[in-house]
């Protein structure tokens, strides 16, 4: 579904992504982990071209993402993206946040978009907050609205860039629960996260990155119980997860 082949990215002289080649299969849940500054967020942001790459190729369902002739706006409707900082639109209510793109981009009628938005808010457990503004919601609630907003475009792929890192600990669970239910429904997902329990529970694959390189990939069982690289071993002992 998502195929990275020999992807390289530089910020000036800094080599942010080094020869990344790997694949995310349809319906797979991949958790990308690694120390901070290892390039995980950069990697996930290249998939919907929030970051450009300088060398290599990323294809999503056969579309060459970084081909200049790609209709980027149309392409992005097929990739849901969830940010660390939620980035809800503060001047719109929760339901309007969810409705905006279906109405403006997909051309759905207001009634249809709203019905669908309400169903999605229901799904993330926030139907009763539909008319609340983001600043009236807790962090966890905001992130769940953000997930509903991304789902409103009915994307076949969802990308999560540290979705729980900006949350107070007691709110992490509610967001992870939503993500777990998505995973169970067969959504193709790529998640940058430090939540190793989430990785254990729902990931099909764990990718471990360091210094812009993809050091190690494997099933969560293999990765957590028997990491092959020294760097992964050190990382796991530092986060105290085995």
């Amino acid at each position: 579904m998502i195929r990275f082949s020999k992807v390289n990215k530089w910020y000036g002289t800094y080599h942010a992504l080094v020869e990344i080649s790997q694949e995310v299969g349809k319906g797979e849940v991949v958790v990308v982990c690694g120390p901070s500054g290892s390039g995980k967020s950069t990697l996930i942001r290249t998939v919907n071209r929030l970051e450009e790459i300088q060398k290599g190729e990323i294809t999503l369902d056969g579309t060459d993402v970084h081909d200049k002739s790609v209709d980027l706006n149309h392409f992005r409707t097929k990739v849901g993206f969830v940010f660390q900082q939620f980035n809800l639109f503060p001047h719109m209510s929760a339901v309007d946040n969810v409705c905006l793109a279906p109405i403006k981009v997909l051309g759905k009628s207001k009634v249809e978009a709203k019905d669908r938005a309400m169903a999605l808010l229901e799904r993330v457990g926030l139907a009763h907050k539909a008319s609340s503004y983001p600043q009236q919601l807790s962090g966890g609630q905001q992130q769940r609205v953000a997930i509903a907003r991304a789902l409103a475009m009915e994307p076949p792929v969802m990308l999560f860039d540290e979705p729980t890192s900006a949350l107070d600990p007691e709110m992490v669970g509610e967001v992870l629960n939503v993500m777990k239910s998505l995973a169970r429904d067969g959504m193709t997902m790529m998640c940058v996260t430090h939540e190793m329990n989430f990785a254990r529970e729902v990931a099909n694959k764990v990718w471990f990155m360091d210094h812009g390189q993809l050091i190690e990939t494997g099933t969560p069982e293999a990765f957590f119980s028997n990491p092959t690289s020294d760097r992964a071993k050190r990382f796991l002992s530092e986060i105290g997860s085995h």
Partner: peptide, 21 residues
């Protein structure tokens, strides 16, 4: 915040819609 633009563009809104909405 830059995230506002990024969130809008990630949803497939073009430049004009991102500005206007």
């Amino acid at each position: 915040p830059k995230g506002q633009t990024e969130a809008a563009r990630s949803l497939g809104l073009n430049y004009g819609l991102t500005m206007r909405s």
